[in-house]
Amino acid sequence: MTSPKSPGMNRRQALFSIGTAAAATGLATTGRAAELHGFPHETAMSADHLPVPAHRGGSFRILTDETDRATLKAAFDRLIPADDQGPSASEAGCLEFLDDQLSRPYGEGAALYLDGPMNREREAAIMGAAQVFATPRDRYAAGLPALEAYAQATDGAAFAALSPDRIDEILTGLEAGEIDLGDDVDGQAFFELMLQNAREGYLADPLYGGNRDMAGWKMIGFPGARYDFRPYIEKRGEELNLTPVSLIPND
């Protein structure tokens, strides 16, 4: 081995190497192990902790199949429809949000433990519910076509062409575990994944491509990334009317 001690490396280089190499990979850090003496005085942000805004420009990078996207939009817009409370999931950017999330380490399942042996029944029995055996990207790649195939088989139409009531009925069936989407897709787990991601997109910082105009935050009255509530804590029970603040300036 070269000793983990790199005598030629000063603190700046050590930190720099931690930060930049890390940004390139899924898990938080790579690069050389660093030997640190003395307090690192550098003030530049670690590259792998800088906020990374969602990819912009209108093109989809993971959800590239048009039918899949239409299926997803139809499902998302029933999970979060447009109404008096605010825009629909797709109007708020939740499809772009999901596409971007799936392009990140989250989509690759970088944090998951996916080593075998894998035994669905035994693991589900011990863990009280189905465990996850695939990355979110793969789960969408299998789940969306399965949903479309289900609609074609039961209704003879595209999922996206079904009436809102019929989509609600299918979503309700999935949620209750009463609809079988085939051997490769656990319908109930796929429903939970879509519901989780749709609502994440609606409620996460607009930095990530969803929650457009902070519509999700305005719906509930969450003031966002303000970070200092000392002036307000003693206004107990008062309506504070705080305009929400995002990590990125308003477009």
């Binding site: 930190l15 850090t29 660093a34 942000m45």
Partner: peptide, 15 residues
Amino acid sequence: AWRDTSTDFPPAVDP
């Protein structure tokens, strides 16, 4: 990794 307040979770990153 080494993580510190101003370089890794300042107020513009933490919330």
